[in-house]
Design a protein around this nucleic acid. Structure first.
Lengths: 248, 248
DNA sequence: CCGACGATTATGTATATACATATAGAAAGG
DNA sequence: CCTTTCTATATGTATATACATAATCGTCGG
């Protein structure tokens, strides 16, 4: 009612009111104090409680609704939602960063490179309509002296023409593409396979050994850009995804 | 400057200004028209362009910043961020729903159930401090007549006392827990393994065959609630995660 | 008893205004 | 030429107000 800005009248210590309302409410929900279905206070009640304007409360509640913690119903109020089907933010880093996080020296090696007209298989992988030029790459990523990951990549040269002139001897295609091509969508497919001979040799493991395969397809503004298949030897890699619903 | 509400003066057709600004700008960024590093118009310029108040523009830009598309710098303006390390929203559904989506009849079977004092291994899996009662479950999920997934679960009875009285013969522990326990965090670990004898038998595959293992640990307000390990035969399962950065 | 209808109410969206705050860049000083 | 100080500027947060919209609830008539 009186103060403006981030300095708060009473209990607050430098945190914005917005933040305080957000954390207060999400804490009550996550701790279970406000069970699913529970009606949280009306905007005008929170307005009185926090001694602030309705807009401030409204912004905070709208954000909680967008984060999926509450559901807002006109005329009825805002209600705690039932826990959602679990979703996790899966971050897939640059392999170099991943390897270096392990404290091991990283090395990249380009095994093969071929510019060709897209085959039917290429088009299926890229979800490409008409045939066009693509660049097929095969690479290895090392952690120390051990092979860490095997990479098979297709780049749609219609979408990224400049890739045709790049040898990819020193730079891995991943980091090269990131930062050069804005991407609008990506799809991951994660599965376990038995290593086929070719890949087993590249990873220095036995044929038939279990491997984790991560495939990623990337689009930029409706155009398919690239398809990658990373193969990791089972013991070398675990994907970790952590999720906290309060996406402040 | 003149109209209020969702009805728009000129071009808009029922969409809120907020939404229109959001989609206009993110489209320009994702299409590459505004490259990384590019300074997007100042708030006061957008205010003039959309003939609206600064607050409306500010809310939209703040949202884009929170979504990671732009970076805002005081005194300097707002800039298109470089494409981030790719992150995907990985949704892990109820297995029943997954199976039924395949058009196959779902069946659940509880193989074993044991209430015990947590062993050292249990405590490591749950990240539990002091020893306490836990419930260990082993289950199978079927798609048609074929085993689809094998489930090994630990439930921390200190956190969820009521689970002690549940036999889990008809209901799988996943759906039972969801909706009963609010959860605040989850961690997934995904990896490939060779099937050990016990699990190979349960899944009706050969020992040593590659399997996809998804482990999930769940907390509720700092208390570990449950640890699950799902094992899928390689050919039966692929995790798919799709991501579009415009998280409207 | 039931269905139509209008009043009430909580949220949704937008405006205009005010002051805070970080900082890039210009001006002043050594 | 380098450093310090000042100022202008763009964003950050909050207020008070206004009107739109959807849905619930009570009322009234058949």
């Amino acid at each position: 009612m009186s103060t403006i800005g981030t300095v708060d009248a009473d209990g607050g210590e430098g945190v914005s009111l917005h933040q305080r309302i957000l954390s207060d409410i999400s804490e009550r929900i996550l701790s279970g104090a406000w069970a699913p279905g529970h009606r949280i206070p009306f905007e005008h009640e929170l307005t009185a409680q926090y001694k602030c304007s309705r807009m401030t409360v409204n912004k905070a509640l709208s954000q909680l609704a967008k984060a999926g913690l509450i559901e807002r119903r006109r005329r009825s109020g805002s209600f705690v939602r039932r826990p959602q089907s679990q979703a996790a933010v899966l971050e897939i880093h640059d392999i170099r960063i991943e390897v270096e996080a392990l404290g091991l020296p990283y090395r990249y090696e380009r095994v093969a490179r071929q510019k060709r007209r897209s085959s039917a298989e290429d088009r299926a992988l890229l979800e490409l309509g008409p045939a066009g030029p693509v660049l097929a790459l095969e690479c290895r990523h090392f952690a120390g002296i051990r092979p860490f990951a095997h990479e098979q990549r297709l780049i749609n040269l219609t979408a990224v023409a400049e890739a045709a002139d790049e040898a990819f001897l020193g730079t891995a295609p991943g980091p090269w593409l990131i930062g050069r091509v804005p991407w609008s969508a990506a799809e991951h497919r994660i599965r376990a396979v038995a290593a086929e001979k070719h890949i087993a040799a590249a990873l220095d493991i036995e044929a038939g050994a279990p491997c984790l395969v991560v495939e990623r397809r990337t689009w930029s503004a409706e155009h398919p850009v690239t398809h990658v298949r990373f193969t990791y030897a089972a013991e070398s890699h675990t994907l970790v995804a952590r999720f906290t619903p309060s996406r402040t």
